[in-house]
């Protein structure tokens, strides 16, 4: 990490080191009727992703004879957070679906299935921050299990900053940290081979050196996540922890 800077955030609420991930659970093959499915859990945040397709695309006018369509929907279950969420889509869920779609679109070989659609459905039964990155981590495993051609894998993590302290894998309590510069949340997805950024968002305050450092930290974390994803894919039906 960068040189010592005075920060109001001196110790993490759950006792983790600043660059430490929450305990991870990953399992491939959780929905028998799906072409591919996976669960990814980080701490208390759990995502389930299901892949259906490649299959016929409705509505027809969205079909593309040159390349296939990847369609990602993201939804939090009504009881996944303390204040009940009204079921159905929201502006937030639609945006997250779209940025996840862009991230996954970078690795999925869409040329391989013209006129068809691959549907990725992400559901969050229990949330403690970092749901979109957990969703992407689950979705990549589900796509791989479904045999959808991919150039490489993706792993994702929410890094951030509490006042001036850079941290990896932000939880909900940290997201609500209000002292000093307050909380900054930076969800990042990194491709496994080309090491490119497939998703990047930021809410809060961040200097350029801090951002550079955070991206480095995210890349290290994503390597660890990728190891777990790979292990889970080798043993479908088995829960891998890390």
């Amino acid at each position: 990490m960068a040189k010592k800077i005075e920060s109001a955030y001196k110790k993490r609420v759950d006792g983790r080191a600043f660059d430490e991930l929450r305990p991870i659970k990953a399992k491939v093959g959780v929905i028998p009727s799906a072409d591919g499915s996976a669960m990814y859990q980080s701490g208390k945040t759990r995502a389930i992703a299901v892949v259906r397709g490649p299959r016929t695309l409705h509505p027809k006018h969205m079909e593309n004879p040159q390349r296939g369509v990847l369609r990602v929907t993201y939804q939090m279950m009504a009881f996944s957070v303390w204040d009940r969420i009204k079921p159905g889509t929201s502006r937030r869920s639609q945006e997250i679906g779209k940025v996840s779609e862009w991230a996954l679109g970078e690795i999925v070989d869409l040329d391989a299935f013209p006129n068809s659609v691959v549907d990725v459905i992400i559901q969050i039964p229990q949330a403690d921050a970092g749901t979109r990155v957990a969703g992407i981590n689950a979705a990549v495993m589900a796509l791989a299990q479904a045999g959808v051609p991919m150039k490489e894998m993706i792993s994702a993590i929410a890094v951030g900053k509490m006042d001036k302290t850079l941290v990896v894998d932000v939880n909900k309590e940290e997201e609500d940290f209000e002292e000093g510069e307050g909380p900054t949340d930076v969800p990042i997805a990194i491709t496994s081979k080309s090491n490119e950024i497939a998703l990047l968002q930021l809410d809060g305050k961040m200097s350029i050196p801090e951002l550079k450092e955070l991206i480095k930290m995210a890349k290290v974390a994503c390597k660890k996540i990728n190891d777990i994803q790979t292990k889970a894919l080798k043993e479908p039906g088995k829960e891998i922890t890390g």
Partner: peptide, 13 residues
């Protein structure tokens, strides 16, 4: 929803 079945669609109930 489409999580459970190929034939289920997203959208209003």
């Amino acid at each position: 929803g489409p999580m459970a079945d190929d034939d289920f669609q997203s959208g209003p109930p």
